[in-house]
Design a protein around this nucleic acid. Structure first.
Lengths: 281, 281
DNA sequence: AACTCCGTTCGGTACAGCCGAACGAGATTC
DNA sequence: GAATCTCGTTCGGCTGTACCGAACGGAGTT
């Protein structure tokens, strides 16, 4: 993974001890099942052991970390699970899509996920793993790249070209595999195809050997809220099956739109005759 | 809700700004979909607005909160979802039990959950909702009372009487309904029954009209790790069905024990000659 | 147009949090 | 079994930061 280690320092802004404390949570998250020792924590922050000690104790008191005895090692705590669960409950999308995801997984045999849009990027809220032996590394709450994921392209396909260009400029077209689209024009052409067929395809563009199919859903005003997507192994998906899967994803996304009080009559993604009206707000 | 407002002040111990920051996260969690305004935050903490402002900004920078425009309101952020998901991944139990929970729900038509033991209390890690219209308020990462839940009693049943008494003393036998067991002797008698039949029953002891059935699972050393439980409406569960459900839960818990490399040797508490981990607060 | 209500910015100051040193428990080596 | 080492934990003094209050600016309301 190409993870930056600079999580600790949002620099100029913010309250120092809070920054440090949250950096410790991140450190514990990265440490995995092994957890952190006091020494690890102090070193990760570049502070004295006693400082790290106080911060750790504070986090433990709030249940953000738990200390595993003996030789106390610090692991992620139960409060985080409780809070993470609440995030999902506060977003009605997660709740409403759960049944649909289960259906999608049952029908396709693939891992299904739902993402909401955040600054043009898909953020995954909920996941139902497929029955296969292969598990994908698809953490919840994770921002994926918009240009290199089916959900992302499904979302972008609901925007006009100008907005897509703006997002590309902000995010950058970072390559993930050999197949990742790395030019704006290439992306716009792909989005045109996406609109025509009603669903987006990521053909080994995010990870080698892995494909995704995604379709967007929207609210009652027709604004894109997010996307459903399914993920599987490229080798197991012949082109014919891909079309069938795409239509399934499209149908489920439409049902989600309806469930959320939206209407499909206006501007479905399958019609590329989108009148580019300037949007306000 | 009868929530204490004293989350903010673990007082003597801990780093003040971190305590305040995490109290803000809790406040945002309680605020629900509405979120917090800056004024709310300042008032909840009893600090100046500018102070709350800095703390909120710091939390937003880390993704613990997100600001919803306009008139910025602060809601729980995506980092919490990501971290909450990681907690589950770091605990192998959650992963391994997922398929079992799905089976249990399919077989019984009830909501299934898995809990791990934390200081004698069950903490729920994972949940699979049943198909019924009724949804139970069962947040993940939540500590339930050991004496008033099926999972809790299933866990206690693996301990010896002395340890049960110690836990009762520490936690207190808080009544939840008219049926809640509120004496230590009553609890010990119930645990004896639990051991005899192999599963624990909560008959409207946690909430009126709701029943739970739970069974414990253990690790390779025979130490209790946690419990599986199912939850349903009391009126829909005739005694005959209860027995059948109990056996199903028992079987699935045993399978989980095996999956985790454990053996199903009898002897729950008597062999467990480690009274408790000595620790002072 | 004036008023009000919020969010946001900006310094000065008190005190909270940081550091370093010292203590104690467990493990490891000879 | 004693000595040594490592690591967690405690304590007090100093420093710098996080807090407060006041002032600013924009949006909605009368």
């Amino acid at each position: 993974m190409r993870e930056d280690r600079t999580v600790a320092a949002p620099a100029s802004n913010g309250v120092r001890s809070v920054n440090r404390a949250l950096a410790l949570v991140d450190a514990a998250a990265m440490a995995g099942q092994g957890g952190l020792s006091l020494g690890d924590a102090a070193e990760a922050l570049g502070v004295a052991k006693s400082t790290a000690f106080n911060l750790l104790k504070t986090l433990v008191a709030h249940g953000y970390l738990r200390e595993e005895r003996p030789g106390p090692r610090y692991l992620l705590g139960m409060s985080l699970m409780r809070l993470g669960d609440l995030v999902g409950q506060h977003l009605p999308v997660a709740e409403m899509s759960r049944a649909l995801l289960r259906e999608l997984t049952a029908a396709t045999g693939l891992t299904s996920r739902v993402a909401v849009v955040d600054d043009g990027c898909p953020v995954f809220l909920e996941r139902v793993d497929g029955p296969g032996m292969v598990r994908f590394h698809t953490p919840l709450g994770f921002r994926e790249a918009p240009h290199a994921s089916a959900a992302g392209k499904a979302i972008l396909a609901t925007y006009d070209d100008a907005r897509v260009r703006a997002i590309c400029e902000a995010e950058g077209l970072v390559p993930h595999t050999r197949s990742t689209i790395d030019t704006v024009d290439g992306l716009l052409a792909d989005l045109e195809q996406t609109r025509a067929r009603g669903f987006a395809v990521d053909d080994e563009e995010a990870a080698e050997g892995v494909f995704c199919v995604g379709a967007a859903f929207s609210d009652h005003q027709g604004r894109c809220l997010g996307a459903l997507s399914v993920t599987g192994i490229r080798a197991e998906a012949p082109p014919s099956r891909l079309l069938q899967i795409g239509q399934l994803v499209r149908e489920h996304a439409d049902r989600l739109t309806k469930d959320m009080g939206g209407h499909l009559n206006e501007v479905p993604a399958s019609l590329d005759t989108r009148p580019r009206r300037g949007e306000r707000g």
